[in-house]
Structure formats: structure tokens, C-alpha cells
């Protein structure tokens, strides 16, 4: 891998910039993440892991510094293009899963593809295939709030994959899971890695960090990288 897939250079993120309550959550981080790897961000609560993920995942723009995805500098792109980029290249698994209540599992999985305007039948079949892959086919028509935590996370992963992105981003994926489900999650990550996905996740769960699955573990503290093995 000559060129890193995601590259941060001197990135800072200051919340409420210019106001009295300004807070610098990311303080000059430079980091390169390679294609096809599983990377973990670790650090105590409040160290800026989630903030860093939003910068990597183009959910937010850095206050200063550069973010490159592939060979594109995205730090200055307008919102519209960021959205498109997000849709094409990233799949997100949020800490609270962030599924839309009241909609069926299948509808939730299909959502990220709606703006692309493919026929409903095509999307529906693709969502169904993903749900089958995650052993959720029998729950496809159930409203998501009826599903268990593990099932909800699998729906969230399926949703992240519907547009076939090359980067998967997961924030504290095992925080709400018991050991068995956490291991199952790692198993899934291994499969996705085998499919060639690049995975970035945050965690302070030893089960994840010590699983041997992580190619790279970046440790953060107070918005700085203290250890990037």
C-alpha cells in the first residue's frame, strides 16, 4: 500500500470556536490509515475518539488541518459533496445504532440508498440479502424497536453496507453487547475485513483491543495521539 486510504495532517477540531466556551477536542493529530486494515482508536472517555471518527468519516470538517480520503482533499469540500462522499464510501455503525424507530428492519437497511434512486425492488432485494447474511431474514418486516440489542446492531451493520462502501466506521460497537454478542461482532468484522473493507472503530473494551484482530491501535488522550503502533 503506497498511498494511505485516509490521511489526517495537523488536524484540529475546536467546538464552539471563537466563543467563550470554545473547546479543542482534537489538537493537531496527524495519522494515516491504510486500505483494508482494521484500526482501533482507544482512549479514556472524553479523549476525542468520537470526534476523530466524525472527522475521518466526513461527518464534520476540521477547524484546521487537512483530511484526505484516497487522493481527494475533503477538508474544504462543501457539505453537498461531503454528503455524497459519505454515501458512497462510508458505512456508519453508531454507538446507539441510531435506527429509525417504527420502520421495519428492511426499510432501515434500505435508507442510505434512497437518495440514489434505484428501483425499490432492487433495493429491497439487496437489503433482504444483507439481512439474510446477518441471519435476520426472519426479522426483516419487524419494526426495529422489537429487535434485541444484538439484532439491532446487525441491522445497523447491514444498513452501513447497503451502498457497498469501502470504509466501515463503528463507534464503541461493543459497549452495549454482552461477551457472546461482542465476539459475534468481532467475527463479523473479520468477515468484512476478508471482503476487503477498511474498518475504523473506537473502543476501550479489552475484548476488542486484545482480540488480535486489530491491525492497528491508536491511543488518544486529551485530543492528542499518545501511541500509534
Amino acid at each position: 500500500m503506497s498511498q494511505p486510504l485516509i490521511e489526517l495532517r495537523e488536524v484540529c477540531k475546536t467546538y464552539n470556536d471563537g466563543q467563550p466556551n470554545a473547546f479543542t477536542a482534537i489538537d493537531g493529530i496527524s495519522l494515516a490509515l491504510e486500505h483494508g486494515r482494521i484500526s482501533a482508536l482507544r482512549g479514556p472517555s472524553g479523549s476525542g475518539k468520537t470526534t476523530l471518527l466524525t472527522l475521518l468519516g466526513c461527518l464534520a470538517r476540521p477547524t484546521s488541518g487537512r483530511v484526505r480520503i484516497g487522493d481527494e482533499d475533503v477538508s474544504a469540500l462543501p457539505e453537498r459533496f461531503l454528503t455524497e462522499l459519505r454515501r458512497q464510501r462510508f458505512g456508519f455503525v453508531f454507538q446507539q445504532f441510531n435506527l429509525i424507530r417504527g420502520l421495519s428492519a428492511r426499510d432501515n437497511v434500505m435508507l442510505p440508498a434512497f437518495p440514489l434512486g434505484q428501483p425499490h425492488a432492487v433495493l429491497s432485494a439487496r437489503a433482504q440479502a444483507l439481512l439474510e447474511r446477518f441471519r435476520l431474514a426472519h426479522r426483516a418486516d419487524a419494526p426495529v424497536e422489537w429487535l434485541s440489542g444484538g439484532e439491532q446492531q446487525r441491522v445497523a451493520i447491514a444498513r452501513a453496507l447497503i451502498n457497498d462502501p469501502d470504509i466501515l466506521i463503528a463507534d464503541e460497537p461493543t459497549a452495549n453487547l454482552d461477551t457472546r454478542l461482542a465476539e459475534e461482532f468481532l467475527q463479523l468484522m473479520a468477515e468484512l475485513h476478508a471482503d476487503g473493507k477498511t474498518i475504523v472503530l473506537t473502543s476501550h473494551d479489552p475484548l476488542v483491543l486484545d482480540s488480535g484482530l486489530m491491525h492497528r491501535i491508536v491511543t488518544l488522550r486529551d485530543g492528542r495521539v499518545v501511541d500509534a503502533q
Binding site: T83, R86, R87, I100
Partner: peptide
């Protein structure tokens, strides 16, 4: 608040403001 949250989710997973 629920609806506001949903709009946030939609935007995060790739919906444009216009969508």
C-alpha cells in the same frame, strides 16, 4: 425531538439536506 433525531440520522447516513 424524535423527528429531529431522525433527520440527523438521515443526514449522517448520506441524505442531503435537499433529500
Amino acid at each position: 425531538a424524535e423527528e429531529r433525531r431522525e433527520i440527523g440520522i438521515l443526514k449522517a447516513i448520506g441524505w442531503e439536506t435537499g433529500d
